[in-house]
Design a protein around this nucleic acid. Structure first.
Lengths: 339, 339
DNA sequence: CTGAAAGCGCTTACAG
DNA sequence: CTGAAAGCGCTTACAG
């Protein structure tokens, strides 16, 4: 009984076919297939329809349904970089799961930061009658929202608009910085260095603010000499090591996991052990790095999955949009063995 | 002039609206909008339509078009893990770019390896009349293809089916292993160790075969004592270091970058320098690791982007499907500084 | 409880 | 060169 011709070439069975086999009208088929609450359908007719559906292998055409209902089940996700970072995958994943949960489907487009590709992507989404779009960036920053997006509901994920006006959801950098520092404090450290990025960004200011606030909360005086600017790379962490060691810090909060990776190398060269001689905590939770360093790195996670999920919740009106301020998503600590 | 009400709530302008404004029929509008080759449209009518389109901001409804044409522009991508690995993002990226190039749009679904989610995902794709689906796994392995997939064209990406029958595209593990080994050979090494995974897989057998074939090609006798089984993790590489050193190997080919990462740690502890004392090459090109190790790791890349792109090319019939054997995608060497 | 009919926005022969 | 009309697969008042 195997009709093994490839599906797209097989004429598909329609509601009309089901109606004929079941001996009812298409309206009736529609009602039972969609289990419409208002509709009273006789037990008998209902059963015949169900049998016909099963025997014919009927599958509703979602596109036709959308057309006649005037309301689509698509959510668009336009991302500047699906590729370059492991993170973007998590955003997609979170958005997809949440969309799915509510009967929506994700349409994804990558723009590579190219304006033309972006315009095309948005046009394509609008032509597909998306319910709305998630505009996402892979690192937390300010963006200028493309004009075309004003033609549909849009929420910003991992970024925020200069002019405001659009709902946005971003990681809570300050809370993250505070959490990281508090972990160090809780382990008994008082002289805590902070290797901060030299790149101006919400991460730069937010994490620093969190660091200061945690210190203050613990009654430890902030010492400007303990914050070290460095490029947010392995090399930055490595290069900063001598000064860290000279500072007498017993613990260091690194702007991100790559910096921590460099610090590991530097510390090891000095014969210093982690965490016995100096404790270190990172930020980002870049899995491949953090989990595989020796010892495994304690860090604070960027909540990419949650960002994607929260984005669709706001888009669908499930979560209230937070007005002109972006909604902040907490960055949870991931404790391993470096503190 | 800003109609700033959100788009989805704004009744959209249809072809009929354009027709009215331009003073022509919808058929004419359709012809000019789609630039139909067969249709002779007067210069004047064409201009009026174009003006109306512009002034009304008309945007074709892709769903309606699909319905009436009976042919959709969707390609489904069902992945077992969008999230867990940085790699999956690249597959999506490659598939999306290639699909786009041919006027197709990507519908993505993540199954987390859950059969129920998978069935739902496939059903959803079929209901959306996808042209076909890409079924992808994040590491190279054999899969059993879900029954539902037989209802549409499908190509396997990064995996292959036991029963065969479905077109597949996978990384060329053997060529990759050969390439890695050849890099070491070219640097003058003769005593080359291979830390292979203990996990049975195409990667395990393929990379080993490539290693042997490169050795043979260089007239170096294969020495069983130089292949070390290890768990494909940082820990595996680290634990193997003493035996590597004892073997007198001057170069080592690691099953993957994480293993190389562990080997780095082990070598460093022994006071050995890379590549001066021992050269190392990895596999996978896990960017966060490979590019940030000290020294940066030479490796062989898994061609995820290409896998995704090749998958859609086969699906669309642009590339011929390779029959019962999977199409092999080359794994290119990425040279950094560890050889 | 069930069906006939109009409509969703487009395309496509077919006339003229 | 251009338009009237049927049709794509479904939904939804409205009758009965």
């Amino acid at each position: 009984m195997s009709t093994s011709a490839r599906g797209s070439h097989t004429p598909s069975v329609t509601m009309r076919d089901v109606a004929e086999v079941a001996g009812v009208s298409v309206a009736t088929v529609s009602h039972v297939v969609n289990d419409k609450p208002g509709a009273r359908i006789g037990e008998d007719a209902r059963r015949r329809v169900q049998e016909a559906v099963a025997s014919l292998g009927y599958r509703p055409n979602a596109l036709a349904k959308t057309l006649s209902q005037g309301t689509s089940r698509f959510i668009g996700l336009v991302a500047d970089q699906i590729a370059t970072t492991p993170f973007a995958g998590q955003i997609i994943h979170g958005a997809q799961d949440e969309a799915w949960k509510h009967g929506y489907v994700l349409l994804v487009a990558n723009t590579d930061g190219n304006d033309e590709a972006e315009a095309e992507a948005i046009a394509m989404m609008l032509e597909h009658q998306v319910h709305g779009v998630l505009y996402s960036t892979w690192y937390h920053r300010e963006v200028v929202v493309p004009e075309a997006l004003h033609a549909t509901d849009t929420v910003l994920v991992g970024c925020f608009a200069a002019e405001g006006g659009l709902p946005a959801v971003v990681p809570d950098e300050e809370q993250g910085g505070r959490t990281a520092t508090e972990e160090l404090l809780a382990a008994g450290h008082r002289r805590i260095a902070f290797i901060n990025t030299t790149t101006p960004s919400p991460a730069q200011t937010g994490r620093l603010a969190g660091y200061r606030s945690a210190l203050e909360g613990a009654g430890v005086e902030f010492d400007d000499a303990l914050v070290f600017p460095a490029s947010p790379e392995q090399g930055g962490g490595y290069a900063t090591t001598p000064r860290i060691v000279a500072s007498g810090a017993t613990a260091v909060f690194c702007h991100n996991d790559r910096v921590a990776m460099g610090l590991y190398d530097g510390l090891r060269e000095q014969g210093l052990r982690i965490p016995e001689d100096v404790a270190v905590i990172g930020f980002d939770n870049q899995d491949v790095i953090a989990a595989h360093l020796r010892p495994p790195l304690s860090t604070v996670a960027l909540p990419h999955y949650e960002l994607g999920a929260a984005g669709v919740r706001i888009l669908l009106g499930i979560d209230a949009d937070t007005g002109s301020e972006p909604r902040l998503i907490v960055c949870p600590p991931i404790l391993r063995q470096s503190v």
